[in-house]
């Protein structure tokens, strides 16, 4: 950013006859990229246009026939699949702001020099990120099951009966798992951004009589807007892809169906439903929705930050 600007103008060409050398460096990556990123996208697009139909008695083997957009119309006619999008949207509307507020407040507090034993507390907030998401879901699963849960037992001791896996509650129980898992990494990213800000700006504001709260909200937060956008964007994308936590918690409650989120529906259709063609069409739909949402979000934040610039 500052002193050692990369001398991109002085960057070098290969000397001598080794024009092929850069290609030797990038070829391995390009190969795996083509095979495991581009090819799956093409496969999903093509596969979604076909369907396998068992001929007659079912023993004659299935034959694959071109069906045009029929898989897509089937997907859009599937009420449960559409509801799963609404469910992750509702989930995201709550989970994303709550987690970002926790991460931002923590990061600002850690940055404010107000917190004692900072390293220990940062360790505590970050520790869950080192727990694999699936294991985190298992772990919280024990907190949600009345038979073992210290939480439910503790609340019962003070005469509060809760069912954390009830139909209306389970969505927020799932949200809690991913907030617990991911708040730490977002806090660290925002904290790193805060630490790289120039301190003398705040010193000047302090001399002008600005309080710490005003400095945090009016100076620090706008200055780390790019990092906030980055973390919010990846959280939103993660929300649309929701799979691990509900898939794991599904085994302890009947209130999570096998097509509870779009990704769970894709998984269920491809495995249990034995219809990978429909699964591919659904994956394309989910991919497009994710793409549109992230582009809208980027667009929206760009225009609002330009309009609201001080």
């Amino acid at each position: 950013m500052a002193v050692q600007t990369p001398p991109s103008a002085v960057r070098r060409r290969v000397l001598g006859g080794g024009r092929w050398i850069p290609y030797a460096f990038v070829t391995p990556f390009v190969l795996v990229f083509l095979t495991f990123m581009l090819a799956p996208i093409v496969i999903a697009l093509v596969n979604g246009l076909y369907s396998s139909q068992s001929s007659g008695l079912g023993f004659g083997g299935a034959e694959t026939v071109f069906v045009g957009l029929r898989n897509y119309t089937r997907a859009f006619a599937d009420a449960d699949f559409l509801v799963s999008f609404g469910r992750v949207a509702l989930y995201g509307l709550v989970q994303v702001p709550v987690m970002m507020v926790i991460a931002a407040v923590m990061a600002l507090l850690f940055d404010s020099a107000l917190v004692r034993a900072r390293r220990f507390f940062q360790f505590a907030v970050f520790l869950p990120y080192a727990v694999p998401g699936v294991i985190a879901a298992l772990l919280w699963g024990f907190f949600y099951q009345p038979s073992v849960s210290p939480l439910v037992q503790g609340l019962r001791a003070i005469d509060i009966d809760t069912d954390l896996l009830a139909p209306g509650t389970v969505l927020w129980s799932v949200a809690n798992v991913s907030i617990w898992s991911n708040a730490g990494i977002n806090m660290i990213i925002l904290f790193s951004a805060l630490q790289s800000l120039p301190r003398d700006t705040f010193e000047a504001a302090r001399l002008d009589g600005a309080g710490e709260l005003r400095i945090a909200l009016n100076l620090k937060l706008p200055m780390i807007a790019p990092a906030v956008l980055l973390t919010t964007l990846s959280t939103v994308i993660g929300t649309l892809q929701l799979f691990n936590e509900p898939q794991v918690l599904q085994s302890i409650t009947p209130n999570i169906s096998s097509d509870w989120t779009p990704n769970m529906a894709i998984y269920a259709v491809s495995t249990l439903g034995r219809d990978p063609h429909l699964g591919s069409a659904m994956a394309v739909i989910l991919g497009l929705v994710t793409l549109v949402v992230s582009l809208v979000l980027v667009r929206f934040t760009n225009s609002s930050s330009r309009g609201g610039a001080r």
């Binding site: 495991f36 996208i41 491809s270």
Partner: peptide, 11 residues
């Protein structure tokens, strides 16, 4: 998004 690729990668 990575997980969207999982199903076609499986295919």
């Amino acid at each position: 998004p990575g997980t969207v690729l999982a199903q076609p990668t499986y295919v």
